[in-house]
């Protein structure tokens, strides 16, 4: 009997001390891993096809480095961290400002991509069907941009509901996951930028 009581006390202590990772954290980390696998394949296809186009226009003829858009997207990774910090300190005013700045930076990036595509399609007559450059360019940049659109949708949902008085402080954890997702696609852009712009324009 004495041994039973020892085991019972032991079980209670085990239950109290039992700590496991947060399922949201694990979920987002592995979501990012599986997205990485998807992007890797498109990046690989892009790398294989650099300089393999049989007909023009070639990257050197039509492509310009989107420096400003890149700076905007990468700095939005910083502003979303500021917003998160403000939320942790329960400073809702600052949170809204930084969140809005993040949204604007992201929207500028999407606008810049749209403007670039418009120029390429209507002035340079480069479509996805023109040559291998068009095929890989539009699919990789488009894949990235579509993910930015998804992130943007979530950013807007958070912003609009907060403006209308939703207590976003209660969702700190989910805001953190959204920010991880946003960071991820910012850093994917670094790779996309390297593969799509730097390598064909500066290296090959």
């Amino acid at each position: 009997m004495a041994q039973d009581n020892v085991i019972a006390a032991d079980a209670l202590q085990m239950e109290r001390e039992w700590k496991l990772p947060d399922r949201g954290t694990i979920g987002v980390i592995f979501l990012i891993i599986t997205e990485t696998a998807l992007f890797t394949m498109f990046v690989a296809a892009d790398l294989i096809y650099i300089g393999k186009s049989l007909t023009g226009p070639y990257p050197k003829d039509v492509l310009e480095m989107p420096i400003i858009a890149t700076v905007c997207l990468l700095s939005s990774s910083g502003t979303i961290v500021f917003a998160e910090h403000a939320l942790r300190r329960n400073d809702l005013g600052k949170f809204k400002i930084w969140w809005l700045v993040t949204i604007l930076l992201g929207l500028y990036f999407l606008y810049a991509t749209g403007a670039e595509w418009h120029k390429l399609i209507y002035e340079d007559h480069l479509t996805i069907a023109t040559n291998l450059f068009g095929t890989t360019f539009y699919s990789l940049v488009g894949l990235h941009a579509s993910h930015v659109v998804v992130g943007m949708t979530f950013l807007l949902i958070v912003f609009i509901t907060t403006i209308f008085g939703f207590p976003i402080q209660t969702q700190e954890r989910r805001v953190k996951f959204l920010s991880w997702y946003w960071h991820f696609f910012d850093w994917v852009w670094v790779i996309v930028f390297t593969v799509v712009y730097i390598l064909p324009l500066k290296v090959f």
Partner: peptide, 14 residues
């Protein structure tokens, strides 16, 4: 459906 050339050997695809 969009006429891309990933696997189109005529256009240099593989």
């Amino acid at each position: 459906h969009l006429g891309a050339n990933f696997f189109d050997t005529q256009a240099g695809g593989s």
